[in-house]
Computed example of a mutant assay.
Amino acid sequence: MDKYGVGQDPYCYAASSVLVNKLNISDESDLENAERDLTQVAAEAIEFCPPPYDFEFFKELHRQLFEDIYPWAGEVRIVDVSKGSTRFCTTSRIEPEARKIFSKLAEQRWFSGCTRDELIKNIAEFSGDLNILHPFREGNGRAMRLLCDFIVINAGYQVDWSPVDSALWLQASIDSVRCDYQAMQQVYSLCIGEELPV
């Protein structure tokens, strides 16, 4: 079983939990290191874009982050996944649930015009819901954080993820399954900074 509890699936090498990749890496630890390094380089090359931020935009961000590693970068997953006791959105519901999440984001004008406190509350709920959607086989968190960078910057605030440790992020993700967004609000209270100069 891989970390998402899928077991043998079409994304992995035969009799392995290692995802098929363009680098032909067969060791999970080596693949994680390559992922980290290559997505960091890719993220630095992606320039800020203003809204609209819709599901197609999110898929494109994922593609740009992971296209050098995975052949399915930017594509919605075709297997159901879970992590621990958390079951993510079933494949048949990903597209319709994504439409709901991103339609609500558009109705709220991508949180532009919010105070910092309002932004923290709104983006915490958005992130929690997007985490449960988990539309990609791998790389959901990295793509989501990049999208949220764009949303925060567009709303007029600085963003810096360095104060957020992995334990808090994990807890926030787990809690959001139960629609408890307090830990996710704590995440964003740490990473959203001052208003950007006009």
Score class of each variant (00 low, 15 high):
T115Q: 12
A14D: 11
D54W: 08
A155F: 06
W161P: 15
C12V: 09
E56Q: 06
A42T: 07
L31A: 03
I46W: 06
E195C: 10
L23R: 13
I151H: 01
D54R: 05
K59L: 10
H62V: 08
T90R: 13
E107W: 06
G74E: 04
T90N: 12
P51E: 05
L146T: 13
K22F: 10
V20W: 03
F150K: 14
Y13E: 08
D149I: 00
I25T: 02
R36A: 11
F57R: 15
C148S: 10
L119D: 00
D2R: 01
E195A: 13
Q108H: 00
L130Y: 08
Y53Q: 05
E138V: 04
A43I: 09
K22A: 11
R36G: 02
P163Q: 11
E97H: 11
K59E: 12
Q108R: 09
R77T: 01
N21G: 12
Y53A: 01
S92C: 14
I132P: 00
S127M: 00
P51Y: 07
L38K: 09
V177L: 11
V6C: 13
R116Y: 03
Y157C: 02
P135R: 05
Y11E: 04
E44L: 10
G113Q: 05
F48K: 13
L170S: 04
Y11G: 02
S92W: 15
T39V: 14
F55A: 10
L38Y: 02
G7T: 03
K59V: 10
E56A: 08
F126N: 01
C89I: 04
V152D: 04
T86C: 03
A106P: 00
D160P: 00
R99V: 01
F66N: 15
I192G: 11
A106K: 14
A143N: 03
W161G: 04
V187N: 04
E118P: 03
D30Q: 15
L31C: 04
A42R: 14
L105N: 05
E47M: 15
N122T: 01
L119W: 02
G74P: 07
L147N: 12
E35Y: 03
F55S: 11
T39P: 08
E35D: 07
P10N: 13
V6S: 12
P10I: 11
C114V: 07
Y4L: 03
E47C: 13
K100D: 13
G7A: 08
A98R: 04
E28V: 02
Q40S: 12
E125H: 05
E28Q: 09
W169T: 03
T90L: 12
L147W: 05
P71S: 14
L146V: 12
Y188T: 00
Q186M: 06
E67L: 11
L168Q: 04
P10D: 10
L65Y: 15
A15F: 12
D54Y: 01
D129Y: 11
N154L: 07
L23T: 08
L65R: 08
S103H: 12
P10Q: 10
R87C: 10
F111M: 02
L105Y: 07
F126C: 01
Y11P: 01
D68C: 09
I78R: 14
D129L: 06
